[in-house]
């Protein structure tokens, strides 16, 4: 029983990260219908930039974390401005191929600078973060993950529900023509969605790096996990992405714990295929409101 609860907690923590990272992916898709195949590489890039800032740069951890997020936010803007914007109006397949190209480019860049080995962050989480809830022991990494994830979720909720920019972003995803007719700067919304997506990808990259170590192949493969997550959650639902992430996280940890660690990376894809056969729009895909 204790083992079960332990796996449950770990699974939810990792799953939240998958969910948040998938949320970035969904955001780009909702705003501009682009599938970003460079998502995993952005994740890895974040983890490596953070690594360099704290080991080579000797910058305090909190500052390095914020600096990395800010840098990735900017990077997202730049990617949209220089690579995607010229393709607005072109066939979607070109844009998607472009993201595949970007993925290769980022991966090459990371291999060039940091190599393909496994790096680890120095121990910096204070042991005071560990928690003992009855029989469940929560290691510092997992409680940190939990805290960061919940803070992000709350911030995003507020951003999309309360702030004007957040509402404009949702309006573009909802009805682009109507948004244009009211003067919403649609290209700016695309750029912002890339910036935010890059930022949350980097955030997940850093935290996953703390949990599993930093390796370009592993991290970019985790980026691929957004596919089972968003398929599960529905490509167009941000809330669904979070739930999908948690389900995949749980599946993975339970498979790893009870069956075999070597199966844990396969199971999400098996689930993906099964779900696609039963519910092609995902479990939590938006139910189209039809009236008028």
């Amino acid at each position: 029983m204790d083992f079960f609860l332990q796996l449950l907690v770990n699974g939810v923590c990792v799953g939240l990260l998958y969910g948040i990272s998938a949320m970035g992916f969904v955001m780009i898709f909702k705003a501009s219908s682009v599938l970003n195949f460079a998502h995993g590489e952005l994740l890895a890039l974040g983890a490596f930039i953070f690594l360099s800032l704290i080991t080579w740069g000797k910058i305090p951890v909190a500052a390095a974390f914020i600096l990395t997020l800010a840098g990735c936010f900017l990077l997202g803007f730049i990617i949209e401005r220089f690579f995607l914007r010229p393709l607005i109006g072109e066939k979607l397949i070109f844009v998607i191929m472009l993201t595949v190209g970007l993925a290769a480019m980022f991966k090459g860049l990371i291999l060039l600078i940091w190599g393909g080995n496994l790096h680890t962050y120095p121990e910096f989480l204070p042991p005071s973060l560990e928690m003992q809830l009855g029989p469940i022991y929560i290691a510092p990494v997992y409680s940190a993950t939990l805290v960061i994830s919940i803070v992000f979720l709350i911030l995003f909720g507020l951003f999309f529900k309360k702030s004007s920019q957040g509402i404009f972003m949702r309006s573009v995803a909802d009805n682009q023509k109507a948004a244009l007719s009211l003067g919403v700067h649609v290209r700016r919304v695309f750029a912002l969605s890339w910036a935010i997506a890059a930022m949350v990808a980097c955030m997940s990259g850093i935290v996953l790096g703390i949990i599993n170590g930093v390796n370009v192949h592993d991290l970019s493969a985790i980026g691929l996990k957004v596919f089972p997550v968003v398929i599960l959650g529905g490509l167009d639902s941000i809330g669904g992405a979070i739930i999908g992430g948690i389900i995949i996280g749980l599946l993975e940890t339970f498979t790893g714990g009870y069956l075999s660690p070597s199966l844990r990376d396969v199971v999400p894809y098996i689930v993906l295929v099964v779900i696609l056969m039963v519910k092609p729009y995902g479990l939590f895909g938006l139910v189209e409101i039809e009236r008028v």
Partner: peptide, 29 residues
């Protein structure tokens, strides 16, 4: 110049008040 489109075109997944707030897009903030 603001055009109200034919066939209404609401933002379906936004509330009425959020829909109205999108009307401030020309003067954000």
């Amino acid at each position: 110049i603001i055009q109200v489109l034919e066939g209404r075109q609401p933002f379906k997944y936004l509330t009425i008040e959020e829909n109205l707030r999108v009307g401030t897009a020309t003067r954000p903030g």
